[in-house]
Amino acid sequence: MDGAADADSSPMHVVIFPWLAFGHLLPGLELARRLASRGHRVSFVSTPRNLARLPPLPPALAPRVDLVALPLPRIDGLPDGAESTNDVPYDAFGLHRKAFDGLAAPFAAFLDAACAPGGNRPDWVVVDNFHHWAAAAAADRHDLQCLRSRSR
């Protein structure tokens, strides 16, 4: 590809939601940058603190990448501000995963908003293996004709 979206198709909208560890966030952001450099729209989903700690996007790509903040639910025993695995003591990883699972409903609401009239319907949803609930959310919206189907 020459850096722009294929001439015979409109740009895609890709949702990227990596696991809350910088070894996942940074490669996910690189994927977002590469997709945006090819003219596609990207919604990069994470928690507010993690998004704030990411390196800035190049100004030319920033308009094509939406940083979507989903606040991590508060879980008793999890330190305040523990949004990345870097912030969590080893013995609290289970609590961190439990808090992460609390993002299922906000993520579904994000997809619903993207599917609403005037929204930017996603073509692809890219998640890590920790997001056991994300595939069902995307599949439900695909069945409702929300997520666009593309043939190539």
Rank of each mutant, 00 (worst) to 15 (best):
87 D>N: 09
99 A>T: 14
71 P>R: 12
48 P>A: 04
70 L>W: 07
67 L>S: 05
10 S>D: 12
51 L>G: 15
119 G>R: 13
42 V>Y: 00
79 P>M: 05
52 A>Y: 10
2 D>Y: 14
110 F>G: 05
112 D>P: 04
26 L>D: 00
149 S>A: 15
95 L>T: 06
142 H>Y: 05
69 A>M: 12
137 A>G: 10
5 A>L: 11
124 W>K: 00
67 L>Q: 11
27 P>R: 10
84 S>V: 15
94 G>S: 15
2 D>A: 12
143 D>I: 02
32 A>R: 01
54 L>V: 04
1 M>A: 09
150 R>G: 03
134 A>I: 03
113 A>T: 13
99 A>N: 03
77 G>V: 13
143 D>C: 02
121 R>V: 05
5 A>K: 08
72 L>S: 02
7 A>I: 15
96 H>Q: 05
98 K>I: 14
41 R>W: 12
99 A>Y: 03
62 A>S: 08
13 H>D: 15
55 P>S: 12
85 T>A: 15
127 V>D: 00
15 V>G: 02
127 V>C: 03
2 D>C: 14
83 E>C: 07
61 L>I: 03
9 S>K: 03
110 F>C: 11
21 A>C: 08
23 G>D: 03
148 R>L: 03
128 D>R: 01
49 R>K: 11
110 F>V: 04
92 A>P: 00
109 A>D: 14
109 A>M: 10
105 A>Y: 12
54 L>T: 10
94 G>E: 13
91 D>V: 02
152 R>S: 05
100 F>P: 00
126 V>E: 01
16 I>C: 13
120 N>D: 04
45 V>I: 15
25 L>S: 01
113 A>R: 11
147 L>R: 01
39 G>R: 06
7 A>P: 04
69 A>Q: 02
22 F>V: 15
130 F>Y: 14
100 F>K: 04
22 F>W: 05
116 A>M: 10
130 F>W: 11
111 L>E: 06
144 L>Y: 01
36 A>H: 03
62 A>Y: 13
123 D>I: 15
116 A>L: 08
140 D>K: 07
38 R>D: 14
89 P>G: 08
21 A>E: 10
32 A>N: 02
43 S>F: 09
84 S>N: 06
52 A>K: 12
75 I>D: 05
101 D>P: 05
109 A>C: 10
69 A>D: 13
97 R>C: 13
27 P>Y: 04
45 V>D: 02
22 F>I: 05
66 D>E: 08
143 D>E: 09
